[in-house]
Amino acid sequence: MQDLRPFFTPGHFIETKGPGTYEPLQWGANIQCFTSDQFNWEDADIIILGCGEQRGDDPEANYSNSPDAIREQLYNLYSWHSAVKIADAGNIRQGETVDDTRAALRIVLEELQQAGKTVIVLGGSHDLTFQQYEAFKRTGKMINASVADMLIDLDETEAMTSKSFLMDMLTAQPNFVKHYSHIGFQSYYAHPRMLETLDKLRFDFFRLGKVRDHIEDMEPVLRNSELFSFDMNAIRYSDAPVNVNGSPNGFTGDEACVLTRFAGMSDKLSSLGIYGYDAANDTHNMTARLISQMIWYFIDGYLVRKTEAELHEHEEFVVFHVSFTDNDTTFLKSKRTNRWWMKLPNQAYVPCSYKDYMLASSDEIPERWLREQERLL
C-alpha cells in the first residue's frame, strides 16, 4: 500500500484531547488514530475517514470541520465491540479545486478497497458518493449500490454536483453499477420521469412510507450491496435539525440506526458514506450525536457478519423447499442470524426476507423474485 499521509491534513482530532480524556471502555480510548508518528492500519477491520468538501453543494462553501464534530460525539460512546478493530485515518486534505479533493478521496478509498478494508466516510456533500463508486470502478469490480436520500439526484448539469452525481454514476460508460437501490425517497420531491428512468434501468426504488412500514425488507437490499450512501436529508428535521433544507417527514433517528446496522451486517458491503452534515447548522450537536449512533450500530451489525456462516456450510442452515405458481425453489434460513436466502432458476442464491418465504408458501410470487428475474433477462 502506498504512503497515504500526504492526502491527509496534519494533526488529528485525537491530538486535541489530553491524556485521560476518555474512559477505558469509550471509543476514544479504543480507536487507533493515525497521528504523524503512527500510521499503520493493517490490523483494522473498519477505517473511518473524514472529508469536509462541500463545494459540490455550493461552489463558494468553505471546507467543513464537520467530521471532527461527529468524532466529538462518537469518541464518547462506549465500546461493546472489542472483537471489531476500528481505526481513524483523519481528514482528507482540501484541494485547490473540488476535483482535487475528490481525487485525493478516491485514491485513498481505492487503496483501502484493495487492502480489503471496510471504510466509513464522514462527509461532506453527497456528490462524494461518486468517489466511493470510483474506488470500485478503478478495480473493475461490478457492484450493487444503495442510497438513502429523500431526493433522487439525477439532475442534468454541466459539472457534477450533489444534485446530479447519480446521472454520472448510473449512466456513464463504461459502467460498473450492476444494480442500484434508492431507499426512502419522498414522492412529492421526486419527478415522475426520474422514477420512470430508474424503472427502465430495472433499478429498485423504495418510497419512504413503504420502507417505514416494513423496514426489515431493507435488510436483504443492503445485504446485497457493496456500497451504501446515506444523505442526512433522508431523516426528518425534528430528528436531524441540521437539515435546514430538509423535510418535516423522513426516517426517525432509530430507523436510520436500523438501516446502518443492516449495512454493517452485510458481508459484501465495504463502503459506507454519511453525507449532508454541516456542524454550523446543527442544534445542540443533536445531529452529530445521531450520526455517531448510526456508526455505533454499523459496528454492531459488523459483529453479525463476522459470525454468519457461509452458504456452503449446509449444516448451519434450515432448508425449505417451496412450490409456487409452477416454480420450485429453495429457501435457506441461517441458524445463527435467522436471515433468509432464496434460490433463483439460475441456481444462484440471493438475500431475501421471511415475508418472501411466506408469500411463496402461500402460492404467491414474491416481488423480489420478479425483480431478480427481470434483471436476469
Rank of each mutant, 00 (worst) to 15 (best):
S323A: 11
D155P: 00
R336N: 14
W341M: 11
D58F: 06
D231A: 09
R339Y: 13
D149C: 06
F185D: 03
V244L: 07
F206E: 02
L311M: 10
G301A: 11
K210R: 13
K333S: 11
A263K: 01
L166G: 04
L77G: 08
I48R: 01
R138F: 08
R236H: 13
L303C: 14
A87S: 13
K335Q: 15
G52Q: 03
S66C: 02
A190Y: 02
S125L: 03
S164N: 12
Y237I: 02
Y357Q: 07
L122G: 04
S162Q: 13
A172S: 15
V319A: 07
G276L: 06
Y180R: 01
Y188R: 15
A103F: 13
E216C: 07
R102K: 13
N224C: 02
P366V: 09
V108E: 02
Y189D: 03
L128C: 09
N144M: 02
S36T: 08
F324C: 03
H182R: 05
D3L: 02
F7D: 05
R368L: 11
E72Y: 09
D100H: 15
G123E: 01
G124E: 09
L311C: 04
A135I: 03
N338R: 13
A104G: 10
D57P: 00
Y188D: 14
L4E: 02
I152L: 12
Q293K: 14
M218K: 08
S146L: 02
H314V: 06
E96F: 14
C257M: 15
F8P: 01
P19K: 08
R71Y: 01
T260I: 10
K355W: 12
F320G: 05
E134R: 13
N233Q: 12
I152M: 11
I291W: 01
P192K: 11
A190L: 09
R138E: 10
R5Y: 06
K210I: 07
G264D: 11
K163W: 05
E364A: 14
F8G: 03
I120N: 02
G264R: 14
A29T: 06
S238H: 10
A279I: 02
M232E: 05
A83C: 09
K268Q: 13
L344F: 09
D267I: 05
R138M: 09
A348C: 04
L25I: 08
I48M: 07
Q132M: 06
D204L: 05
E226R: 07
D43Y: 01
P24F: 10
R5V: 00
N281Y: 12
D45N: 11
T97A: 12
E313Y: 05
M169K: 04
D213I: 00
V177P: 00
S79T: 12
F317D: 11
S64W: 04
T129M: 09
P6V: 03
F230E: 00
R71A: 05
